[in-house]
Structures are given as C-alpha cells and as structure tokens.
C-alpha cells in the first residue's frame, strides 16, 4: 500500500526537520534550565533546594494542587455529564461559560478576584468584618487556581462522552442500575483515561500558575510564595542558580507529567487495539 509522503527522501527530510525544530524550540530551553541549575555543581543545587523558603514554597504549591485537582475533577465530571447526557435550554451558553478562564488572561482573573474578595470589594468587606481573610493567604491562591484550571477536565471529557453517546447508560438504566452504580460501572471505565489526562493537565497548570496567583499572593516569603513565584523572587535576588534550581524542580515535574501522560496514551492505544 502506498501513502502520501512515503517516499524515503520526503520522509527523511520531514522527520529531520521536525526533530531539528523541536530540538531548537523545545529541547534547548528545557536543557538550559537544568544546565543553569547545575552550573555551579551539585552542592549549590542541594543547598538551594534545602533553603527554608524554597521548601515552604514547595509545600504551598503542593497544597494548592491537592485542593484544586479534586474540586475541578468533581466539577468537570458533573459538567460533562450534564452537557453530554441531557439536552436543555442554555446548554451551549454553559459550554461557553466554561471557556471563560481560557479567554481571561490570568492577570485579569487575579484582578477580578482581588476586586471581589479584597478589603474594598463588596464580598471582601463582609468577609473582613467576619475576620475571614481570603486574599493574600493560601485560600485566595487556591480560589484563583481553581478558576484558571477549571476547564481542563471538562474539556477532555466532553468531546469523548459526546462521541461515545449515551446508549450504554440508557441500557443500564433500563436494566435497573442506580445513579452511582451506573456511573461507576458503565461510564467511568469508558472515560477513565480522558479523566486521568484531564487531571494531569489540571495538576500541571495548578503547580505552574503564575499570573493569577501573583496578583493575590502578596508575596510574603515563607507564607504565600509558590514555586513559580519563588523562581522570580530568587531571580531578582542575584541568585540565578537558586532561581533555576526551583525552575528545574518545576521542569522536572513537567517532564514527569509528560512521561506519565505518554505511558497512559500508550496504554490506551494498546487497549484500543485489543478491543478493535
């Protein structure tokens, strides 16, 4: 069988070009992060990593991700179920709403939250009377991260569930399955990998979010500084190695994310082939 672009010359040229461009455009920046982190050897790297503020930044970043991911996971599943399994007025509008975080620049997102929950905002002034501080503390940073990352799970699920249709679920209901059993036994196995992929994306973005979090952080060292903010702070402290140490940590998380995703995809493909 012959396919377009199968001529050995075309093939070689295109693969080489793609590899070259990717190397220049993606691999070199990635490599340079690690190069700069280890520029002065292993000792400064470890020293920077064990810095108290860096450790606290890691903890805060993990906390934000740990709260954000489950919240958006639950929301994403409900939303996807709603818009793919039912037809009701306003469905298209709801789907556009979920795209708002993609349309709003993260800085604007942070600003909106600040204007609402800050001391001068109408909700914020009520909260501050009740002595509740959301902004410039970790709850506010969690809130904006939830905002910024909420479309990822839903966006992964909706096209898939749409394509799958609801015939299986309807059959199960006719057989008398209840809501939870239906979801767990029929739907979940079909969307599992898309769900995991959505979680991975949400997690990566929650760890790496910069613009929105910076707006509501107040950058109190050791308290409200996340890892990406720590990168910038150290960078401005004449501590390039320190900055790139934190950056390397974030890049390492990114690489792990990519590997996990790659393994998952490979897994899905294999399953796909087996079932086909």
């Amino acid at each position: 069988m012959r396919r377009i672009g199968d001529a050995p010359a075309t093939r070689a040229i295109l693969i080489t070009l793609a590899t070259l461009l990717t190397t220049l455009f993606l691999v070199v920046p990635l490599a340079s992060i690690f190069y700069q982190a280890f520029a002065e050897g292993l000792a400064p790297f470890w020293h920077n990593l064990s810095d108290q503020y860096t450790r606290q930044a890691i903890m805060l970043t993990l906390l934000i991700a740990l709260v954000t991911v489950p919240v958006n996971l639950v929301f994403g599943v409900f939303l996807a179920w709603l818009v793919t399994r039912f037809s009701f007025p306003g469905r298209r509008l709801l789907q556009t709403f979920i795209d708002i975080p993609f349309a709003v620049s993260p800085v604007v997102a942070g600003l909106l939250y600040l204007l609402l929950y800050g001391r001068t905002g109408w909700l914020g002034s009520l909260l501050s009377e009740a002595d509740v501080q959301l902004m410039f503390a970790w709850p506010g940073m969690v809130l904006v991260t939830i905002f910024v990352t909420c479309p990822f799970v839903a966006r992964e699920l909706i096209p898939l569930m749409q394509a799958q249709g609801s015939a299986d679920e309807e059959a199960a209901v006719t057989l008398g399955a209840g809501g939870w059993t239906l979801f767990r036994r029929v739907t979940l196995p079909k969307i599992r990998w898309a769900l995991v992929y959505g979680v991975i994306l949400t997690n990566a973005r929650a760890i790496g979010e910069y613009g929105a979090v910076a707006m509501v952080s107040g950058t109190i060292r050791g308290e409200t500084v996340t890892l990406p903010l720590q990168v910038e702070l150290l960078y401005q402290d004449y501590n390039t190695v320190g900055a790139f140490t934190s950056a390397a940590l974030l890049a390492a998380i990114a690489v792990v994310t990519l590997v996990v995703k790659g393994v998952l995809e490979w897994h899905t493909q294999r399953r796909g082939k087996r079932h086909a």
């Binding site: 606290q56 903890m59 805060l60 993990l62 906390l63 740990l66 709260v67 489950p70 970790w138 050791g222 308290e223």
Partner: peptide, 14 residues
Amino acid sequence: ALAATLGLAFAGSA
C-alpha cells in the same frame, strides 16, 4: 484529609 494535614502543617510551621 491529606490536604487538611498539609494545610495544618503549613499554617503551623510559621
């Protein structure tokens, strides 16, 4: 639970 523990540990550290 994990989040809560982490949050407490975090708030407690300072």
